[in-house]
Design a protein around this nucleic acid. Structure first.
Length: 723
RNA sequence: GGGCGGUUAGCUCAGUUGGUUAGAGCGUCUGCCUUACAAGCAGAAGGUCAUCCGUUCGAGCCGGAUACCGCCCACCA
């Protein structure tokens, strides 16, 4: 049979191990004269040296041009061998000259043609890709050297009609990149069709789930079109193929131990097979062979099938598919229930990393430079299912910065904790311990801090839940993004800033320690959420928390510490109101170039709840927004900036209000609102929308319109007041 | 030749069943060395979601076509 032969490795390789590469080549047109001397047939070939092994020329039976020639004899140039013209459907009349040389020993198609027409097979290339004795005068030449000589001789004989440039796909050995040679050889094959059937069913019936989904199709496609597998290798390592051949009668015996004598003729001279199995054959046995199979061991019962197998898509066929087939064959069960295909890390140019290309990035160097956690996090957050990861130092650097941020946050917390008087610290850690029984919830604190605590715990509960869902679906990029944003932009930027005055002040014995306890609970919970992505830094920081110094490891503690009961939508919306006021003030200050100035502001609302909210949190707002004073008044403002439809504010500073600038700002805002309102109105005016859209969408849209219109009204009034 | 994926901000990419104003990191610009963090803080600018057609009350998302780009599979000399 024809196999792919790697002349460098000196072994057969399977179809899967052959990579294809487009190379510039030529198509040579060679004349094969008729035996009787009258004329010739021109064949086109990309491999002229193999003509030495030609045993026929084939044409399509329906090809008018050659109909009369079928059955006639040609003289093979150079070697003067007489070969027939045969008709075979395989030949594409539109390609080349419509006539193809048949080299049964060095081309799988030609091999097929030859077997259909009973043509001899003549091996002209040996296992080192040198010309054999059958090649006559060319014996011993390397295949490429032979090509040149053959071409030269043909040209000299006037039989080379022409040559065209042609891009051809050459097969190369995936291990050593040598161009493989299709060669006639005796090898062991595995019949795959019967093995594939159950493997197809297992996936179709959902006994194995492939994630992401698109790989399921790729897997099934490959299984449907499976080819027999050449499993023998002429290598010196590997599992030996357990076969003995009788030297007397040729009987082939498969056995675990040497049979000793021939089972057929009882002869004592047996020849053990020297070929070994393809390494992937052995790998396919791994899931059960490692557990003691074929014995019915405890391990096998306990760990087979396993829940989850993870691999890169590049070995889905090599290993994944074959484990499934072998597993089903030998254990009657799937080897694993889920197969997760992870992303491949490619270089910055999206090239697959390879040693020969020299674009390999050594992970040890990168982790040395940026830290293991940074690399791990960068990869996790880049791992959107079904896509590869382009390696980027910038990206890793930004998550190194994140690790740094975590470190600093911890430093800040622990540092201030150390400053507490020992008895106060003890009360804090006691409060922390007491809270941690069935999921953390905020401990009671004074009203200003309570809002921050309730908001933070609520957010924590949401993030925890979202992360758990993301993990369950192998959406690691989503889980890591959530915790990144949570920790940096909610915990650090808002929560820590909000409670900073509390944790930097000196507590007396009469003070409640609950604010401190809450901070520690949130921080500890955050470390737990971060731990899967940043195991080292979280482990280190966790042990610095009160009562955690002597514990074994954060990795064996629960992932979710916060209680679901902590979800608190009213705290979230109160917090949002304050946040939007703070952001709007900062914004306004920057706009008028007073970023570093301490200015005053006046906030107004017609909503008593808002007014009371702002009054309660006045100190916090002043600190976060960088204000000197905040006046909270009921009603309307003359030149207010509308943050939401519920409230507005204005900055109060020395500089006179520039009426023109103010007018132009308001006019711009009015235009924006007008556009938004007209969009919403159009939508709400659409009968179809009202009839067909879900109720809650319609209601939301209506609320949105009311909101916009209120804002619009206020802007218009402000403009009128400006005159 | 068949199949799959991609095309979203200057760059690298998210965007899970269609639903208010499309997000992040890096870069750029402005102001800050504010006693956790300048590897940082507070702001800003920047997008006709490749193009066209369709489905829908409504499309970055669903369907079809086109154009580039990438990958996998394949026995066209």
């Amino acid at each position: 049979y024809i196999v792919n032969w790697c002349p460098r490795c000196g072994t057969a390789v399977s179809d899967l191990e052959v990579a294809h590469e487009e190379r510039a080549g030529k198509l040579w047109y060679i004349r094969y004269p008729f035996e009787n001397g009258s004329g010739y047939v021109t064949v086109a070939t990309t491999r002229p040296e193999t003509m030495l092994g030609d045993t026929a020329v084939a044409v399509n039976p329906s090809d008018e041009r050659y109909r009369a020639a079928v059955g006639r004899q040609l003289v093979l140039p150079l070697l003067k061998r007489v070969i027939p013209i045969v008709a075979d459907d395989f030949v594409d009349p539109t390609f080349g000259t419509g006539a193809v040389k048949v080299t049964p020993a060095h081309d799988p198609n030609d091999f097929a043609i030859a077997s259909r027409h009973n043509l001899p097979q003549l091996k002209v290339l040996d296992e080192e890709a040198r010309m054999t004795e059958a090649a006559g005068p060319y014996q011993g030449l390397d295949r490429y050297k032979a090509r040149e000589q053959v071409l030269g001789d043909l040209r000299a004989a006037g039989l080379l009609e022409k040559e065209d440039d042609y891009a051809l796909n050459v097969g190369i050995c995936s291990r050593c990149k040598t161009v493989v040679e299709p060669i006639l050889s005796k090898q062991w094959f595995m019949k795959m069709q019967p093995l594939a059937q159950p493997a197809i069913r297992a996936v179709e019936e959902g006994r194995i789930r492939i994630v992401p989904e698109n790989y399921r199709k790729i897997y099934l496609d490959w299984m449907y079109n499976i080819h027999d597998w050449c499993i023998s290798r002429q290598l010196w390592w590997g599992h030996r193929i357990p076969v003995w051949t009788c030297r007397q009668c040729g009987e082939v015996m498969v056995s675990e131990e040497s049979p000793g004598t021939c089972s057929k003729c009882a002869g004592g001279s047996l020849h053990p097979e020297t070929d070994v199995l393809d390494t992937w054959f052995s790998s396919a046995l791994w899931p059960f062979a490692t557990l003691g199979w074929p014995e019915d061991t405890d391990d096998l019962r306990r760990y087979y099938p396993t829940d989850l197998m993870i691999m890169g898509f590049d070995i889905l066929f090599f290993w994944g598919a074959r484990m499934i087939m072998m597993g089903l064959k030998f254990t009657d069960d799937v080897p694993f229930r889920e197969l997760y295909i992870h992303a491949l890390v490619r270089d910055a140019e999206r090239q697959k990393m390879s040693k020969t290309k020299g674009n390999v990035i050594d992970p040890l160097e990168v982790t040395e430079q940026y830290g293991t956690d940074a690399v791990r996090f960068a990869l996790a957050i880049s791992a959107a299912p079904g896509t590869d990861i382009a390696f980027s130092y910038d990206k890793i650097e930004s998550y190194r910065n994140f690790a740094n941020k975590i470190w600093n946050a911890s430093r800040f917390i622990v540092m201030n904790l150390q400053k507490l008087a020992p008895e106060v610290r003890n009360r804090v850690s006691a409060a922390t311990e007491a809270a941690s029984k069935d999921g953390f919830e905020p401990l009671p604190t004074d009203p200003t801090l309570a809002l921050a605590d309730q908001w933070m715990f609520s957010r924590l509960a949401t993030i925890t839940k979202e992360m758990e869902e993301a993990f369950a679906d192998y959406r690691f990029h989503e889980a890591s993004y959530k915790v990144y944003h949570f920790f940096w932009h909610e915990f650090c930027d808002w929560y820590l800033e909000w409670i900073k005055p509390e944790i930097t002040r000196t507590l007396g014995p009469e003070d409640s320690c609950n604010a401190w306890a809450n901070l520690l609970l949130v921080f500890e919970s955050s470390l737990h959420l971060l731990h899967p992505f940043m195991p080292f830094i979280t482990e280190e920081l966790w042990h610095r928390l009160p009562n955690r110094g002597d514990e074994v490891s954060i990795s064996i503690t629960p992932f979710a510490l916060v209680s679901e009961q902590a979800a608190n939508s009213s705290a979230e919306s109160d917090f949002e109101n304050i946040r939007s006021l703070v952001v709007a003030v900062r914004n306004a200050k920057a706009e008028v170039g007073l970023q570093k100035e301490k200015v005053s502001a006046r906030a107004a609302s017609e909503d008593a709840a808002i007014l009371s909210l702002f009054n309660t949190h006045r100190q916090t707002i002043l600190m976060l927004a960088g204000l000197e004073a905040l006046e909270v008044t009921s009603g309307r403002l003359e030149a207010g900036i509308h943050v939401t439809s519920a409230f507005e504010f204005q900055l109060i500073y020395e500089k006179q209000v520039d009426h023109d600038a103010e007018r132009s700002r308001l006019t711009k805002e009015r235009e924006k609102l007008e556009a938004a309102i007209s969009r919403v109105k159009k939508q709400l005016g659409n009968r179809n929308f009202l009839d067909r859209a879900p109720e809650d969408v319609v209601r939301k849209t209506e609320n949105h319109r009311t909101d916009l219109e209120t804002q619009f009204q206020k802007v218009v009034e402000s403009l009128e007041r400006l005159g």
